[in-house]
Amino acid sequence: MANPDISTDPSLVPDDDPSRRDVILIGAGAFAAIGGAAMLWPLLDQMNPDASTLSLASTEVDIAPIEEGQAITVMWRGKPIFIRHRTAMEIEEAKDVKLDKLVDPLARNANLPEDAPATDANRAASEREPWLVMIGICTHLGCIPKGQAVGDYKGEFGGWFCPCHGSQYDTAGRIRIGPAPQNMYIPPYAFESETKIKIG
């Protein structure tokens, strides 16, 4: 069937009205493309977190048992949350740091605007500066830094030390030395009472 003559391929008959046919065919193609995209979207979106996951928003934590100098780790949305009850010395050390010495100058605090600077006041709980609440995940590649337990090596700055690649955080959880690019994130949280924090 190699002969391209009209007795075998009617598509070669000279056209009466090619432009009108083209319009209709372009329309058909457009509808097919829209229909295809519309069918594809739900197939992709269903992988996004579902409504029940999105609703499991908050965890409440009783902080009364945490002594000064102690820290606890709780889970929130599958992530570890560091809650440290800082000593006076730790607070002083954090406040003393000049902002231009910081690797990451931003507060990374979900309760504040994005551009808030990483002062100790913007990192610690407002009006309750002994309390530091952070997502305990190193911003380098996701390991959980050491420093929560009393006997842990806390790095040069007395905060946290990540054993994976040596990132070191200060007593306000800010990155000081090492490959991590950003300060540890602070989740949305609020004090329900003097002894209870609701995270998320």
């Binding site: 009209i6 007795s7 598509s11 009466d16 046919r21 209709i24 065919l25 058909a28």
Partner: peptide, 27 residues
């Protein structure tokens, strides 16, 4: 959407097959 699409597809089918009918008439 599908109703409009169906109309467009029907017109497309007719437009494409018109060539065949033209060929037959030509013969």
């Amino acid at each position: 959407f599908l109703l409009v699409f169906a109309v467009i597809m029907y017109l497309s089918k007719r437009a494409v097959w018109a060539r065949l009918h033209r060929r037959d008439h030509a013969h």
